[in-house]
Simulated assay, not measured.
Amino acid sequence: MTSTTQIDARIAGPVEFRAGDGPQLKIPEGNCQILMADDSVVLTWSENGQSLTAAIPKIEFDRYIEDGAIVLGRG
């Protein structure tokens, strides 16, 4: 069984994801929600009134946290 945790966060720097086999897409700076599982992270944010979602590997998420591009909590 996989455990998940939901956290409020903020995109504070360059964060990108790949949609399928397409190009890297940028997540805009601002508030987001994070759903963490054991090996992946799902980010949800709003852009132009639309809710968008991206999944990234946990190792990439950890790098974004370390670099300060994703800040946990709201601020």
Rank of each mutant, 00 (worst) to 15 (best):
M1S: 09
T2E: 07
S3Y: 12
T4Q: 08
T5E: 11
T5Y: 07
I7F: 11
I7M: 09
A9Y: 04
R10N: 08
R10I: 05
G13D: 09
G13F: 03
G13W: 02
P14W: 09
P14H: 10
P14V: 11
V15I: 05
V15R: 01
E16I: 05
E16Y: 13
E16V: 08
F17E: 05
F17M: 12
R18I: 09
D21L: 09
D21K: 15
G22D: 14
G22E: 10
P23N: 11
P23L: 15
Q24M: 08
Q24W: 05
Q24T: 04
L25P: 01
K26Y: 06
K26D: 02
P28D: 00
G30W: 04
N31R: 01
N31K: 00
C32M: 04
C32D: 01
C32Q: 03
I34W: 13
M36F: 00
M36G: 03
A37F: 11
A37K: 09
D38E: 12
D38R: 15
D39A: 12
D39L: 10
V41P: 15
T44K: 15
T44P: 09
W45G: 01
W45I: 00
W45R: 00
W45N: 00
S46N: 15
S46D: 13
S46H: 15
E47V: 02
E47C: 06
E47D: 11
N48T: 15
N48Q: 15
G49E: 03
Q50W: 05
S51V: 06
S51H: 02
S51T: 10
S51I: 05
L52I: 08
L52V: 05
L52K: 13
A54C: 07
A55F: 07
A55E: 10
A55K: 14
I56Q: 10
I56F: 03
P57F: 07
P57W: 06
P57E: 07
K58T: 02
K58L: 01
I59V: 08
I59G: 10
D62Q: 09
Y64P: 05
Y64K: 08
E66K: 13
D67P: 01
D67S: 11
V71W: 04
V71C: 10
V71L: 11
G73I: 02
G75K: 11
G75F: 07
